[in-house]
Write a protein that binds this DNA or RNA. Structure first.
Ligand SMILES: NC(=O)c1ccc[n+]([C@@H]2O[C@H](COP(=O)([O-])OP(=O)(O)OC[C@H]3O[C@@H](n4cnc5c(N)ncnc54)[C@H](O)[C@@H]3O)[C@@H](O)[C@H]2O)c1
Ligand SMILES: NC(=O)c1ccc[n+]([C@@H]2O[C@H](COP(=O)([O-])OP(=O)(O)OC[C@H]3O[C@@H](n4cnc5c(N)ncnc54)[C@H](O)[C@@H]3O)[C@@H](O)[C@H]2O)c1
Lengths: 244, 244
DNA sequence: AGGAGTTTGTGAACGCGAGAACAAAATCTG
DNA sequence: CAGATTTTGTTCTCGCGTTCACAAACTCCT
């Protein structure tokens, strides 16, 4: 690993690894709850659904937190990963668009328990203002800038209809938000330095449909109804976006 | 492209390409609605948020549907992609776990309009049975096998709490479902030939948090509050799971 | 008709990630 | 204490995906 020419060079964690760290974190939390104090890379890899070599390589980017011949201290490793991700502190989050999906998100308890705190629910529809969802009041969308400023909000969630999403994103960026989780379909355009991640249910289903169609096609034309001729997938598809 | 040793060899579309086809499909639908009859790879790539070379290579796996010097016929290409994905037909879908999230999913109109039909809503909680959500009644989970058989259901959605997810998945597979979209956190174990895709809100937020933390760290220690020292991302993160 | 201009489809180069394999480091055993 | 055993951290190789760059193919204009 030749250090890049930069002075400190820090640890530059590959994006694929970053995407798996939360999975390891969850697996470690499960192990803790099960009372396990120590685990090998093999065990943890199984719990996370990945290859053990991949797991070890991923962890090596963070440092040397294991002990050869022994394994990893579950609690210690869990803390190190949480610190690396940045979820030892609580991140304030705003949700915009409190419709079907927004309500579900606001009610989702997994937010709190994983290092995120919903500080505001915003909606453009005045008839929703004042409504309490999971103890938080729905407020006018125009309060965004003030809320972001007062609470140091860096992360915003968009759950509005698609046509409003770009507008909302622009206003979020303007207000100082630099990370957006977008549930509305379509492409968001944001300035450099702003991260966007997209969750698109229809795309996921369509990917499944494609593979489903291939399976069906492979059984039909031959006439023979054979079982799983080509193993498409089995497990451990931690990497979002890949199936096999 | 050397044809694999198999007899027909068909077109083997790379997984990364499959994951982008739905994005192109949506972009083309937008163009159609905007009244555009023809478009270049450059225009379509912009609408989909990807590099135009990548778009052309992706489309080349499907066939030669463009005209050099002209571009693509929007409607024709849209149909070809829809056919390739398999969404010219309607796919019956069952949703299991009609709580917060399940309600939102059941109410989601984007299902229907994109080639999927919710044929049943299932929940283990008897007090929910009979409730109508978007015109579909909530039924006992034990009806699963019959519903899958009668409606030829291949795709199932899991929106139950995490502890129940593996059980539900097992029952789905047993009933004949071979594609699962899982919203519950944790790793599902399924037999070969069954596809699982996972949507995990917390993981997405944690990935954002990681990058957010890096941005903050890069501004602080230097003392200087410079603007975006290293361009982390800008746009076009079509590929789920990557940020930059 | 012929040349200029466009735009597709693809060959080739490159970089990143996955996995196998192994050396180093720790524990355990006798 | 020495050797066997376990398990990590890392090196190496391979394959996939992205991107560049360009020839082929089509249109348009004179
Ligand atoms: N419901 C689902 O399960 C689901 C699944 C996948 C994707 N989505 C997407 O998520 C988004 C929301 O879906 P939904 O079913 O909750 O829709 P919805 O219509 O129920 O809710 C949208 C909410 O956004 C508010 N809104 C509209 N414009 C706004 C603006 N400019 N600023 C602030 N708020 C605004 C509306 O008042 C409404 O309350 C949609 O883009 C949808 O495609 C939903
Ligand atoms: N609400 C969200 O926004 C959100 C976001 C991300 C992930 N999730 C995940 O989605 C899942 C559902 O979340 P929710 O908020 O809707 O939970 P919820 O508790 O509101 O709903 C769960 C539903 O599943 C039903 N259920 C439980 N066990 C079952 C079983 N064995 N078979 C059939 N049905 C069963 C329950 O009766 C309940 O109706 C959870 O795993 C959660 O972690 C939710």
């Amino acid at each position: 690993m030749t250090a890049r020419t930069s002075p400190e060079a820090a640890r530059e964690i590959p994006e694929a690894t970053v995407a798996r760290l939360p999975v390891y974190l969850r697996a470690l939390t499960s192990l803790t709850e099960a009372g396990t104090a120590t685990c090998s890379s093999e065990e943890l890899a199984a719990a996370a659904g990945v290859n053990s070599a991949k797991l070890r390589k991923d962890l090596s980017y963070l440092g040397s937190y294991g002990t050869r011949g022994v394994g990893y201290d579950v609690e210690y490793l869990r803390y190190q990963i949480a610190r690396e991700i940045g979820v030892t502190q609580d991140w304030p989050v705003v949700i915009v668009g409190i419709g079907n999906l927004g309500h579900a998100l606001a009610n989702y308890s997994g937010f709190r328990s994983r290092g995120f705190r919903v500080v505001a629910l915003l909606d453009a529809d005045a008839s929703r203002h004042g409504e309490l969802v999971a103890g938080v009041a729905v407020r006018p969308f125009d309060d965004l800038a003030a809320i972001v400023r007062d609470n140091d909000v860096a992360i915003g969630v968009i759950a509005t209809p698609a046509p409003a999403a770009q507008d909302v994103a622009d206003r979020m960026v303007e207000a100082g938000i630099s990370s957006i989780l977008n549930f509305a379909p379509g492409v968001l355009s944001v300035p450099e330095g702003v991260d966007v991640r997209k969750v698109d249910l229809s795309i996921e289903l369509q990917i499944l449909a494609y593979h489903e169609q291939r399976k069906a096609q492979q059984a039909r034309p031959d006439g023979s109804v054979d079982e799983v001729p080509v193993p498409l997938v089995e497990q451990g598809l931690v990497d979002q976006g890949r199936v096999s």
